[in-house]
Design a protein around this nucleic acid. Sequence first.
DNA 1: TCAAAAGTGTTCACCGTACACCCATGG
DNA 2: CCATGGGTGTACGGTGAACACTTTTGA
Lengths: 229, 229
Amino acid sequence: MINSYQGQTQILVAVDCIIFGFHNDELKLLLVKRDFEPEKGKWSLVGGFLQPNETSDDAANRVLLQLTGLDDVYMRQVNTFTDPNRDPVERTISIAYYALINLEDHNEELRKKNSAHWVALADVPELIFDHAEMVKMAIKEIQYKTSIQPVGFELLPPKFTMRQLQKLYEAIYQEDIDKRNFTKKINKLDILVKLEEKDMSSSRKGSFLFEFDKEKYEAKVQNGFSFKL
Amino acid sequence: MINSYQGQTQILVAVDCIIFGFHNDELKLLLVKRDFEPEKGKWSLVGGFLQPNETSDDAANRVLLQLTGLDDVYMRQVNTFTDPNRDPVERTISIAYYALINLEDHNEELRKKNSAHWVALADVPELIFDHAEMVKMAIKEIQYKTSIQPVGFELLPPKFTMRQLQKLYEAIYQEDIDKRNFTKKINKLDILVKLEEKDMSSSRKGSFLFEFDKEKYEAKVQNGFSFKL
DNA sequence: TCAAAAGTGTTCACCGTACACCCATGG
DNA sequence: CCATGGGTGTACGGTGAACACTTTTGA
């Protein structure tokens, strides 16, 4: 295997972010209308080029920060897309990342300034290049990840109701869940704190708020516990 | 999000292959002793640079073909590694792939010519750059993949015994499995064909050979069946 | 008093797991 | 005849899935 460093082709490397949020019992994506060529005016994931001294994780975080004002967000690599013709202008490979954010936290001004919009998964328009495939893979990935790690909470506010949590999982798995079985399962995990407080916005009766107890979860993991939904 | 294509940094893009084989009830990796700088003489995964007109899948297949003589091999992306300092010579990002091959099939001459060796997982020496991390991620990935898809068979010859299959899963999951429970589970899946033929090499009594019935498996998948081990 | 969402238990089928003995054969 | 690995069944506890009614309260 002769890998000469001389004469090897250098290539543009980009990151693209699939940014998930949750609102009104729906999973949403943060999409931008491109304000530059090619495909100006078309819908696209938000992305950027990898800079000389940053990792792709850095780049993805930078891009996300610029668009949402959010730092310290749950982000993971999905896949790298390398079709020589995926970008018509110049050969570019793209490392796709997904991010899970609490939609309420993002900076509206920045979002508007970048002509970005929250779009429900069901309403995602045609996307440029291979971005639709990126989204598809990201969804599969979060379905898996949320089933084995308590990362779904990243999409919710710190205090949430059992029903919100259920709707979130229904949106992620794209299937209905029986609420009695769901509550039972969550309770058995024993990683939530039930607050005194109620959320009165969703019903007359009101519904109790919960918090994810990260310390408790991590302590349990130390003792061999593994999250499974 | 201003992504000018002008003035963006171009970067070397490599692929590295984590090649798994199975022999003597052990998972093995195909590693090479580098015959070029940097780190000449050190152990390394086999890799190569992405060429102008190929996808990274192409590149990984090319690299694997050159080393093993094998084509049409099960390969999947693991992750892309982008630390600016991961390669001391020049900035290079690497897209890691894992491959599952039937160790018996590979071309010994090519292997020797490239100073490649099969090394049991437990005996993997120190590897250059971030290759150890690549291996770690690849193992996690095959643990997951082999639990939800019948890809373990890629590591076995077309005809194999129930015991071989069990030892394979034990090697992948790195834990012992009860043979009665294992047999029961596999039989329930109903995707193997039991042959008349026996393998007489492992015991006096001999043990029956099986084949994976790919058509049957795919037909079942069409009907909603999902593999789970 | 009614509409709307919250909250809560039981049953049953199936699955995972633990566990031990006989079989066939070559030497 | 014996040593070696091959092959097989059962019992039990736990889990997942189906399923319906009562509670609260604001309007």
